[in-house]
Amino acid sequence: MKNHLYFKVLVSLLILTILAALVVTLDIGLKATSAIILVFFMVKFLAVAFYFMELKTAHVFWKSAVLIFASIFLAIVLTLV
């Protein structure tokens, strides 16, 4: 069961990585491109933390801490771009 879960997470991560690289080739403006790339980043970041690092089994404090870090980083970079 878990075997398939890890594999599904890996496939999703690889698809998001390739999509992020493809988005750059589209002519949709810097803001939109940045937003899409950074949203993909956040999903991948949380997937690695929650599934590969098994944070989903951890105390809510650690889950929240990672989520807050990724959200703040995303918000700051999106504001600056």
Binding site: F40, V48, M53
Partner: peptide, 22 residues
């Protein structure tokens, strides 16, 4: 040890979109 290795993944996931794509 595994968590340290995954940390390298996490850091790269921060670096890749900003340095190579943004």
């Amino acid at each position: 040890s595994a968590v340290f290795w995954h940390m390298c993944d996490l850091i790269w996931l921060l670096l890749f979109p900003i340095i190579y794509l943004l």
